[in-house]
Write a protein that binds this DNA or RNA. Structure first.
Lengths: 140, 140
DNA sequence: TTATATGCAAACAATTTGCATCCTG
DNA sequence: CAGGATGCAAATTGTTTGCATATAA
């Protein structure tokens, strides 16, 4: 499959651990922390070590297969790198994360290329606020 | 001054340490890590402890006087909270950070309020890429 | 004069590294 | 079978906490 080609092209080997970790990130559609991935993976492969998780996440990130999110203050979360760029909307009340696509961001990239000669290779757009429900709860 | 009113309103005291730390963030116009602030502050006040720096940063953040940036993978940076919202453009080559204001982002907030009923209270917009100079160096 | 802040040291949590062993290519 | 990958334990790094002492209000 494609993933294997990408890893091999970088001189990396395909191991059951790497397959497993990637499949977990895929199934859970992202937003998992390293530790969560570790625990989920150990259900299937109890000898897996946390360092392997970290090393694998590094490799997958370098290879552009996953991307890192700073949704929390103190740890990183991971999701599959998709083709279409998207942004995250985080509710500070209940913690839910909504993903959205935003045409404005595309225009922003174009503007910056024009204005500063910057070549944008990645972006973190994380908006924080309160969802409709949490706003209502606060009002009560 | 205003800062003191804000802190007092929250039952916080004004101490030389807090003044110093805030003034350092002001002078350096942000993008400083806790450790950098610590070292700069110790030049003026050698007995200052790192924990005081962290505690002060917490308080200043809670009070809305400074804000946190995730410009790096592994640590937080701080800057004075200004009225006008702005975004950060980070060069992965040389590390320089350009601040910019973006009308598109304002529109994005409006869209999200409309579409999801979300009330946006803060945002992290960090764009990563390569500045003109670093692109040129890479080309060579 | 009393609650809040500080400094110091020790504790923590997330991540990284060293190294012997294992296993993919 | 050789070099990359793993598991384990130990080290590192950024940040937080406990506690006795100092200090702002």
């Amino acid at each position: 499959m494609d993933v294997e080609r990408i890893l091999r092209a970088r001189g990396r080997r395909i191991t059951p651990q790497r397959r497993l970790i990637l499949s977990i990130i895929q199934e859970h559609e992202g937003h998992l922390s390293a530790d969560e991935i570790y625990h989920l993976a150990r259900e299937k492969r109890p000898r897996l070590s946390l360092s392997t998780v970290y090393r694998t996440l590094d490799i997958l990130r370098e290879s552009g297969l996953i991307s890192e999110l700073h949704l929390d203050r103190d740890l990183l979360r991971y999701e599959i790198q998709r083709d279409e760029e998207h942004q995250h909307l985080v509710c500070l009340g209940c913690g839910r994360v909504i993903e959205f696509k935003c045409a404005h961001c595309t225009r922003m990239h174009q503007d910056l290329a024009l204005q500063y000669g910057f070549k944008i290779t990645g972006s973190r757009v994380e908006l924080l606020g309160y969802c409709a429900e949490c706003q209502q709860k606060q009002a009560e």
